Simulated assay, not measured.
Amino acid sequence: NRYSIIALNIAEIYSHPDFVQQEDIDTLTSNIFESTDKGLSTQKAENYALKLYKLARESYPNVNQTSFLVKKVQLLIQQLKNSIQQLSQLDKEMVELSQQLECFEVIRSIPGIGELTTAMIIGELGDITKFKSNKQLNAYVGIDIKRYQSGNTQYRDTINKRGNKKARRLLFWVVMNIIRGQRHYDNHIIDYYYKLKKQPNEKPHKTAVVACMNRLLKTIHYLVTNNRLYDYQMSPH
């Protein structure tokens, strides 16, 4: 991941293959181990070192290690790390601001939705209690159903896409994250997704995800308007 701190730290130190080959495996392992504070194991650091050493040997750079381009890469990496740290601080402030709202803990209680995601949802949807029904919320996001029918011919249903594009993209990402984390928690959104995928007329993946977005919005609207925390046993299965 080119945006992870460990990857950027390694790329900054070893921005030319010659820098790698000038050191032994133990030194490479030690530098990689110290490039992150996320508790990287020694074995994993050594695996990274061996992989890095292999890449360096197979590389054919078109500039030498003293080139200004190598220094430019290092400078760009430093700027990117600074930007990531600044964005991380802004995310933290956004979460702290959102935590002052009653709906924060309600939305946060839905399995698979973390603090930052909760803040982002609140940022895009605003005051959820102003929507009298979940259908109004769906229309605001732009996932209400649009039907075309001419005579006896009925075309496939599509979503409106006239609402908040950013909210629509965010909710798609949220549902995907909920599905990916299914091993760690129970969530009726996951049950609904696989129900749509397994029924006689199996829904395509994207269609099923959009339907889950609809179900998630309905859940959020119900929980927020009733000021209730999520309970899997009470949710519709």
Rank of each mutant, 00 (worst) to 15 (best):
S4E: 11
S4R: 11
H16I: 15
T27C: 13
S30R: 14
I32G: 09
F33S: 11
F33K: 15
L40H: 14
L50W: 10
K54S: 15
K54H: 15
L55V: 02
T66F: 11
S67C: 07
L69Q: 13
L75P: 03
L76A: 10
Q79T: 02
N82D: 08
N82V: 06
S88I: 04
E102Y: 08
C103R: 12
S109A: 06
I113W: 08
I122E: 06
G123H: 08
L125A: 02
D127I: 05
T129M: 02
L137P: 00
G142Y: 03
D144S: 01
I145E: 05
K146T: 04
Q149C: 02
N152I: 04
N152E: 13
T153I: 08
Y155W: 09
R168F: 00
R168V: 00
L170I: 06
L170Q: 05
F172S: 01
V174T: 12
I178T: 07
G181I: 13
Q182C: 07
H184A: 10
I190Y: 02
D191S: 11
K197Q: 01
K198S: 04
K198G: 01
P200Y: 01
R215S: 06
L216A: 00
T219Q: 13
L223E: 04
L223M: 03
L223I: 01
V224Q: 12
R228Q: 14
